[in-house]
């Protein structure tokens, strides 16, 4: 596909998707090389992200999406009041942190790390699609495994894992022996599996 046409197509794809699409997915759909997609998106960004438009293209969770500019927020909430309702309690943020660094985890593992029952937080996070069930653990009772979902990256504005400190860097005096890494494929995966 020729660059001008590719740009137009990507614009349409990003608009209609409404959430992040990964580079590879765009490349497959448009029959182009990932490098060409990246170039086209960079050009689109130059045009859109100058501040003259109400929307801009941003990198989220290993993909790209069209977001509205923060200065337009008040009017968006006037039009769609429910969009401004999402709040995050400290305990919900805690549960999210555990899932983010330890995924995939079971509810029992979350409770173990927090030292308190986390059922309510897990339920609200699931309802808000910030986390999702994916598979079951091969253990007695086959407990369900929980992972971060695509919405999470958008809600927290996380481009990829380099945006979050590694488990090792989290608290200064960590001499902890085991250092689980963030699941590197998670961001990529979620951007791909959503249409």
């Amino acid at each position: 596909m020729e660059t001008a046409e590719l740009k137009k197509t990507i614009e349409a794809l990003l608009f209609i998707s409404g959430k992040a699409i990964s580079k590879d997915r765009i490349a497959t759909v448009t029959d182009s090389r990932p490098v060409a997609v990246e170039d086209a998106i960079n050009e689109l960004k130059l045009e859109w992200n100058s501040g003259r438009h109400g929307v801009f293209i941003e990198e989220i969770g290993g993909g790209w999406q069209i977001s509205t500019r923060p200065e337009c927020a008040d009017y968006i909430i006037k039009l769609y009041p429910w969009k401004g309702v999402l709040r995050l309690s400290p305990s919900a943020a805690e549960v999210l942190s555990i899932i983010l660094y330890k995924q995939p985890v079971t509810k029992a593992q979350i409770n173990e790390i927090r030292g308190v029952d986390s059922q309510a937080s897990v339920a609200t996070l699931l309802k808000n699609s910030l986390i999702k069930y994916s598979g079951r653990k091969k253990a007695p009772g086959n407990p369900r495994l929980i992972r971060i979902s695509e919405n999470f990256y958008h809600i927290f504005g996380i481009r990829d894992i380099s945006d979050i400190p590694s488990w090792k860097d989290l608290a200064e005096d960590s001499r902890s022996a085991e250092e689980p890494e963030i699941d590197e494929t998670a961001a990529e995966e979620t951007a791909q599996e959503d249409e």
């Binding site: 927020a73 401004g84 995050l88 943020a93 942190s97 555990i98 609200t124 809600i155």
Partner: peptide, 28 residues
């Protein structure tokens, strides 16, 4: 560590409060 990460998430969340996309998760 989880507490440190919680603080990071909370502050990122506050920064992002005013950015929306079309497929915004239905707010609960």
């Amino acid at each position: 560590k989880i507490k440190a990460s919680r603080e990071i998430l909370l502050s990122k969340f506050r920064e992002r409060k005013n950015l929306f996309r079309r497929d915004e998760p239905a707010a609960i």
